[in-house]
Amino acid sequence: MLTGLISPFRRTSGMARWILVSGLFITGVFIAFALFAPWIAPYDFNQQTVDGVKFDKMAPPDGDHWFGTNDQFYDVLSRVIWGARTAVEVVALSVMFSVVIGVPLGLLSGFVGGWVDRVLVFLMDSLYAMPSLLLAIVFSFLLRGPLGGGIIAAALSLTAIYIPQYYRVVRNTTVSAREATYVEAARAIGAKNGTIMGRYLFGNVIQSVPVIGTLNAADAIGTLAALGFLGLGIQPNEASEWGYDLSRALDDAAAGIWWTTVFPGMAIVLLVTGLTLVGEGLNETVNPALRKRRLRPVQLPPHEPSTYLAEKDDTRFAVGDRETVEKRDER
């Protein structure tokens, strides 16, 4: 299992490896923030007091508050770190949901074909044609009633945007893989359709899913922030969210209070960049069209004395005598 995870990394070289490594590093830092937020962040995301003393409002960065405080008396550094947890949670959930729904749908649609395929293609294309932010807004409105403004609701509204991407990729690879000889061979040994899909097609059509997954994750960070910015995402009392903080801090920026916008903004940009780099790096290794065989420069050793015949040699003997021949074999 572990070697399976490392193998794409081992296959890379040069630029692709550099992209992958830097992306993994940036993403790794944010994931660490998310996992260890309670220990890393100096305060809670909705903490306004310490030992009964209220924080200053919009205080500039200093020793107590490295990133300063904002207009709600929150510590910006803590908000940024807790925000990483929110972002990672939402994005991980939404990618998981869309993979779990999109991949089987694509597999089924591509394998079964016929009207099932046509209906699904039409549905997914309609979803895909909609501007993604608009779609997310609609879904978050719809889900706010039953699920409230929490992480699950946000993740589900993002899920709807990304299902069509997995569906399309998996469906198209399935359509071509369906004609492969090994699928016919599976039929010939008496495999049921379910077995063929699960054991023969699945493993061969999901190869590009990790790439789409990471690229979608990057996109989802942006969309989540946009939702928060519009006040439609996660509600401020539920969790810390960068987009929401940005929208609140917008007015402060005009007054010269830079720390409330710069830090959450930086967090968004960095995480999006990190995930995009991972996605592109993976793409270079997984996608055979982009992958280049690793070539090592060759140095041809000097020619040994030729063993080719001298044509005028009457004895019809080789030019290279036994001595040189034996030398050849010592190397």
């Binding site: 063993t307 080719y308 015949l309 019809r316 080789a318 021949v325 050849r328 074999d329």
Partner: peptide
């Protein structure tokens, strides 16, 4: 197994 043969021309 030890020595590379030499190219030789026949009649």
């Amino acid at each position: 197994a030890t020595t590379h043969p030499i190219q030789r021309e026949m009649k």
